[in-house]
Each structure stands twice: as structure tokens, then as C-alpha cells.
Design a protein around this nucleic acid. Structure first.
Length: 552
RNA sequence: UGGGUUAUAGUGUAAUGGUAGCACUACAGAUUUUGAUUCUGUCCGUCUAGGUUCGAAUCCUAGUAACCCAACCA
């Protein structure tokens, strides 16, 4: 029996609408402006809009809100489509606000004819001054009472290209004393002689957000137009246009956008990180962009799951990034192939293992038998992690130390007898003897050890560059700290290990594969990797109880 | 100092007048050929003050706090 899962407030509205016959089926839309790359905050909106349609048997349109040619580019359109698809969603129609420029223009003409819109020659400063303030009512523009005929011809002239940018705007006549600033004769068309990525130079006037978004919703018969909280004050205007133009009554609902600890989420700030070189690119694995997360090794499932768990509500939130990490570990635990890699190597010599001898050992590829096995070469000289040996073992230490017994994963139990140091006093070689009858799978030694460590055979190992990522910011909420958010960038967010030793099977790794380097974390092949120079990204580390123990 | 929105464990999110639940985090323990996974348990909460009611997170009154709104951006 499945448990009754509680509904979020939007699902409640939808169920009410469906039950009352307010609508037969639902139609939502995801409406990005193609002026940047999608990030995890957009993923929340995507999962909501598409998820709702899937849950209630409706449909979702992908609509580009491309009404500002100065900022928008085809590159962004392409990346957005790729990211939505990668997340696992299919839109039923791909639309553009620019598809509707003719209709929107006609809506404006309708408003003029109704005496509800006028051409204003005021400067931006004059318009701002007359607008008043939240505590002071605004004043009417001197151009507010132009005749319908004059407005019609002026607006036609605006469209025809008679005027320069900024010379005139079209405003709607509502109420200059309204409490809601958005109702004080908002501008609905401005002149912009700019090349549009889709309509080219066909237009030199473009509708503003408030006169494009709701109209597009209505043209498409969107039933539930879901946006973020900052658009609440726009809703009154949204409804006013629909009512005044007598068009399909789409309804707007608002939810709280995603904020996450140790990251920034605004497109403006993310753009700055890229253009100022704090990160390499939009898809830098440290970026909270969908493309960055994909490159880092996140899976669509883990992101969708995260979006499911954070919930939908109207209060401001700051989600702990550890929830995201939990979600990706949970998914990768089931998907990642287990392999062995040594990031910070030290030589281990098995002194009683014959020189020149090698043997193939069977290693499990995953958490249970169903994942199968692979063969891994074992030999006298191995690489192990420096951190798995302690000259003077700490309390509760159960890895390698002088005299200590430990198991080499999938191989033998060994005992450390000796170690060498270089001139600088660093441990340069560890020597041990192995117990032949302790072989993994056929262990008759009856020896129990607490520790198991990973290794790679020195003569068989491949070298690879490994990139370890940490949080991009040191502050929990960089945007809310004093000063510029960039002051809180973590200088150690990227650590490159130029020469790690990895097991040979990794030569066949492909982009999109996920690996668990046993005891080290989840990794994936980076797009910069070549057969000559392998490059891996750490998606996320494993939980590390020992590291916590050490901190105490 | 106008208008709008929101207040539930450390972080999120449920409970729709009737046992404050779930997840993450933190902590403790069991299992473990990954100090992973898995399993078990613990700590911790209704913004404040009044009121209505047999009973209030929920209803009423008065406060308080946070966020949003004065782009020819979306």
C-alpha cells in the first residue's frame, strides 16, 4: 500500500481546479530568457512545471522569453534545450515569445483604441520622477491625454522606425496613485534598434515582460503559470491585461526560489564568475549550472530527486548543500562501478612475494553480485595511499602501521615489517609480508583484521590527472555577506592531482560513466580527457567517519 | 514612514480545530573484505503576548522579524 503523500500548495490548487471543472487538463510552461545557462534553481522550476504535468496528465511547453534582443543569444537557447532534455523532460511545444510579436502588437493597438494606452515622450528620468515612490503617489504624464488617433499614428511610427531608442514608449493607462507600483501606468513597449536572434531586424519595438509573458501564457492557453515570489506584485497587472483584453484566463502562482548554502544562484553573479575568470566556463564543475553539474558527474536522477525533497512552498529558504550531496551519493552508490585508484601514492613492497610474479584477482564491480566482477593485476610492488600508513598509529587506527595487519582489498592480508624514509624524513617505501592463505575468496587463515585498504599494482597502473572540487564559496550565504560576494570565493575550490595511479580498466572510461574509487569518492571522466592524458573529476567524496574522528 | 508575502527542530518540509510527523545534518551503536553502503537509536521545534475552545501550529486580537516592490531587465 502506498502512503498518502501530502500535496504542495500548487498541487492542491490544481486538484481543486480539476475537480471543479475549472479546467479539463493542465498546461504548464517553463519560460526561461535565453540570456544565460540554466542552474539548479531552474531545475527546481523545471521539475515543478514538468512534474505537475506528468502527475496530472497534462502538458508542458518550453517557451523562450526573448523580448530583450540586447541580452539574448542562440547559444543560450541551445544550451537550455540540451539541459532540459538531459534532466529527462520532454516539452510538448517549443515556443518563443517572439513568435507572438504580431499578436502582442495587435493587443497594444486594441488597448490604444480602448483609450487605455498612450505614447509618452518623457525621458526615463521624467517617467521615474512622476512615478512617485511607495509612500508617495505618482503624477500623470503630460502626454497621458493624447487622442486615440494620435496615439495610433505615433505607435505606428514607433514600429516603423521613425524614432531613436528611448525617444518614446507606449504606456498603459491605469492609476498613477496605485499602491502597487507596477500599476502606475507601466511601460509596455520600448524602442530598441537591435538585432534579435530570431526576428532579425524585423522589429525595432519590443514588448516589456509584463506585456509579453502573460499574453504568451494566454495565447498558449497555459492554465497554471508558475513563477517565483518576486513576481507577486506583477500578478495584479497580469490579471488586468487578461481581463481588459478579454483573452484566455491563465492564472499566475508563485513559489519560493531555491537558495543553497555556499553557492550563488543569480545569473548575473554566475556570469561574473565566468567573465572575470574565477571559474573556467559556464560548465566549470564547480558551477551550480546544470551543465557544470553534469560535467562534475551529477546524474539527472539525483537532481530530480533533490528537487523532490526540497519541496515547494512560499517561504524564503536556504537549502543545505549537504542534501544535494546526499542525493548524488544515494544515486551513484547504485550506479557507480567500483574501481581502485591511489591519489597520493607511496610504494608498498611485499617482500615475500616473488619478484616478477603477477596474478589476476577478481574484484566486485558494485555493491552486490549482480554488478559482476573484473580482473585486477596484483604484484610484488604496489601503490597505496600515504594516508593509509601511520608511523605512530593514533587511537582507533586500523590501517597500516609498523607491525600491524591489514587487508589489501580483494587480495591478501599483509603485515607491515619495515619502512624507509627519504632525506626529508618522508616515508618513501613500506615493506610488508603477505599471508598466502588469506587470499580473498579462499581465505583459510582465520585472521580477522579491522582495516581494508585499496591499492594498484605499480607495474600495471595507469597515470591520470584528478581534479578535486570543493565548495566555491567559504561563506554560507555569500550574497548576504558584507561587501562583494566574490570576496568569499574559496581559493582552494579546485585541487589538481597531476599524477594519480589508477587501475588499467579505467582506460576504457567514457563520458557519462560513473565510478566509485573505493574509499575515495565518486569520479567521472572529464570532457578534456584524452587517451594520452586521462582526466577525472571528483563528483563528491564518500562520507568519511574517520576524518570526523580525527577532527575530535 | 505605503503596499505585498512569509514565520513549525541546525536546514528543509508535513500536520487543513483532535497523538507535532518525514528527510537531511549532528551524535551514539550494530553489521561490514570500502571507517562507504545498510540497520538501530539519540538530541533538537510550532516568532511573541493575550484571547476563543473540552481541545489551537491551525481560529481571533495586538505586536515582532525576514523578504519583495519605485529597470525603456526578465
Amino acid at each position: 500500500m502506498s502512503e498518502e503523500k501530502s500535496l504542495n500548495f500548487i498541487e492542491e490548487i490544481i486538484e481543486t481546479d480539476l475537480a471543479s471543472g475549472q479546467c479539463q487538463s493542465i498546461l504548464t510552461r517553463f519560460p526561461p530568457e535565453p540570456n544565460g545557462y540554466l542552474h539548479i534553481g531552474h531545475a527546481k522550476s523545471i521539475c515543478l512545471n514538468f512534474g505537475l504535468a506528468i502527475k496530472y496528465g497534462g502538458k508542458t511547453n518550453l517557451r523562450f522569453d526573448d523580448t530583450n534582443p540586447a541580452k539574448e543569444e542562440t547559444e543560450y537557447v541551445d544550451s537550455i534545450k540540451e539541459d532540459v532534455k538531459w534532466l529527462g523532460f520532454n516539452w510538448s511545444n517549443e515556443f518563443y515569445a517572439s513568435d507572438y510579436f504580431d499578436q502582442i502588437y495587435n493587443f497594444a493597438v486594441t488597448l490604444i483604441k480602448k483609450g487605455l494606452a498612450y505614447v509618452d515622450d518623457s525621458t526615463p528620468d521624467e517617467i521615474a520622477t512622476l512615478k512617485g515612490s511607495p509612500t508617495e503617489p505618482g503624477k500623470n504624464s503630460p502626454f497621458r491625454d493624447r487622442s486615440m488617433e494620435e496615439n495610433l499614428s505615433l505607435f505606428a511610427a514607433m514600429k516603423a522606425g521613425t524614432y531613436q531608442d528611448g525617444e518614446k514608449v507606449l504606456r498603459v493607462k491605469i492609476d498613477m496613485a496605485a499602491n502597487n507600483m507596477h500599476m502606475r501606468d507601466p511601460i509596455i513597449y520600448r524602442i530598441k534598434h537591435a538585432h534579435h536572434h530570431r526576428t532579425g531586424d524585423q522589429w525595432c519595438i519590443y514588448p516589456m515582460y509584463d506585456f509579453a509573458h502573460g499574453q504568451s501564457d494566454s495565447i498558449e492557453n497555459i492554465t497554471h503559470s508558475i513563477c517565483t515570489l518576486e513576481f507577486i506584485p506583477h500578478r495584479e497587472l497580469y490579471d488586468w491585461f487578461i481581463h481588459t483584453l478579454e483573452i484566455f484566463p491563465s492564472k499566475q502562482y508563485e513559489f519560493a526560489r531555491l537558495n543553497m548554502t555556499y553557492t550563488v544562484m543569480s545569473k548575473r553573479k554566475l556570469l561574473q564568475l565566468v567573465t572575470e575568470g574565477h571559474v573556467q566556463s559556464w560548465d566549470d564543475p564547480r558551477m551550480p549550472t546544470i551543465s557544470g553539474m553534469r560535467r562534475r558527474g551529477y546524474t539527472p536522477e539525483s537532481i530530480r530527486n533533490f528537487c523532490e525533497r526540497i519541496g515547494i512552498a512560499k517561504r524564503e529558504n536556504l537549502i543545505d548543500v549537504s542534501l544535494l550531496e546526499f542525493c548524488v551519493r544515494e544515486d551513484l552508490n547504485l550506479k557507480a562501478t567500483r574501481v581502485m585508484a591511489v591519489l597520493e601514492p607511496v610504494k608498498l613492497v611485499i617482500t615475500n612475494y616473488p619478484e616478477g610474479q603477477t596474478e589476476e584477482l577478481m574484484c566486485e564491480n558494485g555493491p552486490d553480485e549482480s554488478y559482476g566482477h573484473r580482473k585486477v593485476q596484483f604484484s610484488r610492488e604496489l601503490w597505496i595511499e600515504q594516508e593509509d600508513f601511520m608511523e605512530e598509529p593514533a587511537k582507533k587506527w586500523f590501517r597500516l602501521a609498523p607491525g600491524a595487519l591489514v587487508r589489501l582489498k580483494s587480495a591478501y592480508i599483509i603485515q607491515c615489517n619495515h619502512f624507509l624514509k627519504d632525506a626529508a624524513g618522508n616515508i618513501s617505501e613500506i615493506q610488508a609480508t603477505y599471508i598466502p592463505e588469506s587470499k580473498s575468496g579462499s581465505d583459510t587463515s582465520e585472521i580477522k583484521v579491522k582495516g581494508t585498504i585499496h591499492w594498484v599494482s605499480a607495474q600495471h597502473a595507469l597515470q591520470a590527472e584528478i581534479r578535486l572540487y570543493d565548495r566555491l564559496f567559504n561563506a554560507e550565504n555569500p550574497s548576504q555577506e558584507e561587501g562583494d560576494f566574490k570576496e568569499y570565493i574559496n581559493p582552494d575550490s579546485l585541487q589538481i592531482i597531476p599524477k594519480a595511479f589508477i587501475e588499467p580498466s579505467l582506460l576504457n572510461a567514457e563520458i557519462g560513466n560513473h565510478f566509485q574509487y573505493i574509499r575515495k569518492g565518486y569520479f567521472c571522466l572529464d570532457k578534456e580527457s584524452t587517451k594520452e592524458k586521462l582526466v577525472f573529476n571528483r563528483t563528491v567524496s564518500l562520507k568519511d567517519a574517520w576524518a570526523k574522528e580525527v577532527k575530535k
